[in-house]
Amino acid sequence: MALLEVENLKVRFPSESGMVEVVKGVSFSLGQERLGIVGESGSGKSMTGRALLGLIPKPGVVTADRMQFDGIDLTRLNERAFRRLRGARLSMILQDPKFSLNPVMTIGEQIGEALAFHGRMSAREQKQRVLKMLEAVRITDPERVYRLYPHEVSGGMGQRVMIAMMAVLEPDLMIADEPTSALDVSVRGQVLEILDDLVQRTGMGLIMISHDLNMVARWCDRILVMFNGRVVETCAAGKLGEATHPYTRGLLASLPRLDETRQTLPVLDRQSLGGL
């Protein structure tokens, strides 16, 4: 059985000119694999991820014919039940540790908090688990980092802290929403390696939301291409080059290459895609 099955997921927000649909009926399923969701800004990829966690802010409306996670019907969960699921079984890594970590709480306190609201354990046990998790994301001096505040660590280390915080309860499904976009190129690889490590070790399913086609193609098993709130293409990562949809082809064509021979870099011809 698939870990996650989504059918006809829609996310709508009311506006002055009626309901605006930002996700227009997305369907996919996920096993214990790495699924990449790519698309440009505003394509609905982040909203899809947040809808899965029940994090669409009011007055947004989420509907789906089916949204099932490991036998649990997510469409019927109330906030309380969702809260029990979040952090423990479903988790999400956010984009920029500069904003996604609480500035006035120590790193140890923030990771420990994830443990504190799911099951009881002693303060000492909690600290031990946090320290072990910090080690798992390759932080060399966990005792010191435990006591630091977010502004005292670098972006790369901040993002590793974020991963530690979201993975400390070994969730079954992790959503990574642009986990490397805010980082220096030099530390991106390292963060991906740590994520890779986690997936291999714990066997969790992973949804990687990104606009970086190359990274997703290299790193994921399967790819969904989203455009304008819809999935326009689904394919195995290795076969991205054989994609047929005009939007995907357009995206691929506009990627710059090191051995560039073209005079001008083509841009997407949105006119021809307008009907979507």
Binding site: R86, V104, M105, E113, M165
Partner: peptide, 26 residues
């Protein structure tokens, strides 16, 4: 409205704690 409030919600922190610990402390 800050991102770290979303982080806290993803962790499964109850609303009451989000308000007093995460939003009020800063």
């Amino acid at each position: 409205g800050q991102e770290f409030i979303i982080t806290a919600r993803v962790k499964g922190v109850p609303a009451r704690v989000i308000i007093w610990r995460h939003a009020f402390r800063p």
